[in-house]
Nucleic acid binder design. Structure first.
Lengths: 348, 348
DNA sequence: CAAAAATTTGTACACGTGTACAGAGATATT
DNA sequence: AATATCTCTGTACACGTGTACAAATTTTTG
C-alpha cells in the first residue's frame, strides 16, 4: 500500500540504508545513486513515515501552542487570532506542524503540556500567557528537566531573571505612556482611563505608563478617572455610561481605553449621550485589532507587533529545536507604535 | 531518562508484553497484576511513547483541521474562530490532538493534506471549506484511496451524491428566507440585499432564500436592490454609502446584509446620512458573531449553529476513526435561527 | 489425583526509519 | 603489481510498542 524505503530499496536494487541516506542527503552516498533514488522516491510519491522517523530520531516536526484560557472569549480571540495565524505561517515555512491547545484551566493546560512532552509528540512548546500569576513554577521545572525547547510569548517572565525561561513581549508601559502623552500633546488634560481588572501584567504596565505620562507633564493623577472593567465592548460601554457624570462634570476631553474593544464600547456610549468623537472627546484604544481601522470613526490606537512576536518566537524555538547551544535565555521586548486615525483631535 | 514499558516490566518482574496488555486494559491479564502494573506506571509518571505506538497501531490520536484561505482575513477569522474553539474542545474530550493548517492556497492546502496522510501523522482530516468550486476532485480521490476518515464542515459537497464525502453544513437558503420573511412580516416591502461576490455556495443560497421570500409574499424582486461586495465592514459601509440615493429615492426601509460585518458597516454609513436604525431603516445581519450582541443597536441576525457543527463533525470523525463501518456518507443540514435584537422594527 | 480446560504469562517478531560498524570496490601510491 | 587509502554500500541492531503463538500456570472435571 504505502511506499516505504524498503520498497524503494528493492526496486532500486540497493539496501534500505542507502535509500535512507540518499533521501536524507547524506554525503556518504555517491551522487549518481542519490539522484536516482531521489527521483524514484519522487515518482512513487514517497513520504517518510513520521512515526517511525520520530521514534528513531526523537524529532517530530511538530510544536504545540498553548493559548490562554480566555482565548475563547470574544475580545481575546479577536486579539490572539492574528498571533495564531502568523505563528502558523512562520512554522509552515520551517516545515513544522502546529498542534493547538486552548485549555479550559491552567491545570488541564499543564497536564496537556506534560503529556505532549512525555509522549514525545512535539519538539517544542510555545506558551501564550499574558498573565503572570497563573504560571506554575512546577511546569517550568518540568520543561527544564525534560530539556524541551519552550518559549513564552506575550508574557513577561519573572523566570527570566533566574535564566530559566525565554520570553518575548511588548512594552506595555511605553504603550500606555505613548498613548497618554499623545493626548496631552493634543492639549488634553482631563484624560479618563478605562482598563481591565485582574492581576494582568500588561494592563498594570499600561496603567503605569498612563500615570507616568501625566506626571511627566505635571498633570495630577485623578484616581476617580481610572475605571476598571473587562476587556470587551460591553464593559467599555458600561463604564462610560455609568460614569457619564464624571465625564461631563469634570470636563473629561479624552479617554484612553486599554483595549480597542473597550474603546468601541465607550464610543457607543458617548454617542447615546450625544457626545461626539473626536470633536467633544478624543479616544485612544490599544491593540490595533483589524476592527479598529474599519470602525467609524477609525480608531487611534497603540499597535502591538503581533506578527513580529510570532516571527521571533518561531525563529527562536526553531533554533532551539535544531540544537543551537543556548547559553542564556532571552527576553525580547518589542516596541509598540501609535497609529493615529480619526478618533483623536487637537483640543479646541 | 524517560520511562518505557520495558522499564516498568523490569521493575515489576514481568515481561513487557504483560505491561503493554495491562496498560491497554486487555482481558488477558489477571486483574491483580493489571492493577499493580497500572499503579506502578502511575507512580512513575509513565506515558506511552506516541510515536512507537503510532508506528505499531497506525493510530496517532491526532486529527488535522484545514481552514479556508480566507481564515486570516478579518471577517473570516472572526467567523471561524468559534468553530475552531469548539472543535478543539470536542476533540479534547476524546483525547485527540488537533493540528491546524491555514493554507496560503488550495495547492498548499492539498499538499499539506497529502503529506499528513502519507506520513501517517493524523487519523483524520476535517476540511472547513465554504466554497464549492475550489475543491479539487483529485484530493478527494486521494483521501478515498488512502481510506483516511475525512469530513467537510460548512460546505455543501456535490460529492455527496456520489456517496463520496461526508458533509455538515447549515441551511443558507432557509436562513436567507427567514431573515427576509421576518422583515416582510414587519411590514417592509423595499428590502435591499447586500451580499458577497464570488461563487460561494453559502451566499448564493442566502440570496435565493431572499428572493424566494419576496416571491412568496408577492413582492417583485428588484435587481437594483441587490448589491455585491465583500464580507467585511468596509464593504458594507461602501455599498450603502455609494448607493444611498437608491435607498432614499426608492424608499428602502430595510437592509438584509449577508454578514454581520457588512451589517455593521451599513449601519455606520446610514448614521452618516442621519438615517436611524431601526427607526428609519431596519437591518438584519447573518452569522451572529459575538460582536452582533455587543454592538449598538444590537444586531438582529441569523444565527449559525457553529458549535453544533463542530460537535457533530467531531462525533462523526471519531466514529470513523474508531472503525465504525460506514455504509453511506452523511449530509447533515443544520437549521439556522433568527435572533431578534434591536436593529429591526415594525414599519411605521 | 490425573487429565483436560481455562487462564495467564512470555518469547519472538513486526511496524519504518536511522546509523555504527564492517566490508567491498575503486582509486591512488609505491 | 601489490599495497594503502578512500569512497561507497550493506548488515545488523536500535528506537518503544502491540500481538500471534507457544508455553506455563492455575482451575475444573471426571
Amino acid at each position: 500500500m504505502t511506499v516505504t524505503i524498503k520498497d524503494i530499496a528493492k526496486i532500486a536494487g540497493v539496501s534500505h540504508a542507502t535509500v535512507s541516506r540518499s533521501l536524507n542527503d547524506s554525503p556518504l552516498v555517491a551522487e549518481k545513486t542519490k539522484k536516482r533514488i531521489k527521483e524514484l522516491a519522487d515518482n512513487l510519491g514517497f513520504e517518510f513515515n513520521a512515526n517511525a522517523r520520530s521514534l528513531s530520531t526523537n524529532k517530530t516536526g511538530t510544536v504545540c501552542a498553548i493559548f490562554p484560557q480566555k482565548f475563547g472569549e470574544f475580545g481575546a480571540s479577536l486579539y490572539y487570532i492574528s498571533l495564531l495565524n502568523q505563528l502558523r505561517t512562520s512554522l509552515e515555512e520551517e516545515g513544522i506542524d502546529l498542534i493547538v491547545s486552548f485549555p479550559k484551566s491552567s491545570k488541564t493546560g499543564e497536564s496537556n503540556i506534560k503529556r505532549l512532552i512525555i509522549s514525545k509528540k512535539v519538539d517544542g512548546i510555545i506558551i501564550i500567557h499574558p498573565r503572570l500569576e497563573k504560571i506554575d513554577g512546577q511546569i517550568i521545572n518540568f520543561m527544564e528537566l525534560s530539556k524541551i525547547p519552550y518559549i513564552f510569548l506575550h508574557h513577561y517572565s519573572s523566570f527570566y531573571e533566574e535564566n530559566l525561561a525565554d520570553s518575548i513581549y511588548t512594552d506595555h508601559f511605553y504603550g500606555g505612556y505613548n498613548a497618554t502623552d499623545y493626548l496631552i500633546k493634543l492639549g488634553h488634560k482631563k484624560i479618563m482611563c478605562i482598563t481591565s481588572v485582574g492581576n494582568s501584567y500588561e494592563f498594570e504596565q499600561r496603567l503605569n505608563g498612563y500615570k507616568a505620562a501625566l506626571n511627566q507633564n505635571n498633570i495630577p493623577v485623578d484616581e476617580n478617572l481610572i475605571l476598571f472593567g473587562y476587556r470587551d465592548i460591553a464593559s467599555g460601554y458600561n463604564l462610560v455610561r455609568d460614569n457619564i457624570k464624571s465625564i461631563t462634570d469634570k470636563g473629561v476631553t479624552a479617554i484612553f481605553a486599554h483595549t480597542d474593544l473597550m474603546a468601541i464600547g465607550a464610543m457607543e456610549a458617548l454617542k447615546e449621550f450625544n457626545i461626539k468623537v473626536p470633536d467633544d472627546v478624543s479616544i485612544v484604544g490599544y491593540d490595533d485589532i483589524e476592527l479598529a481601522e474599519d470602525f467609524k470613526p477609525a480608531l487611534t490606537t497603540i499597535h502591538q507587533p503581533r506578527e513580529e512576536i510570532a516571527l521571533l518566537g518561531c525563529k527562536r524555538i526553531v533554533e532551539m529545536i535544531n540544537g543551537k547551544k543556548i547559553k542564556n535565555k532571552i527576553n525580547i521586548v518589542l516596541q509598540t507604535r501609535l497609529v493615529v486615525r480619526e478618533s483623536t483631535k487637537q483640543i479646541k
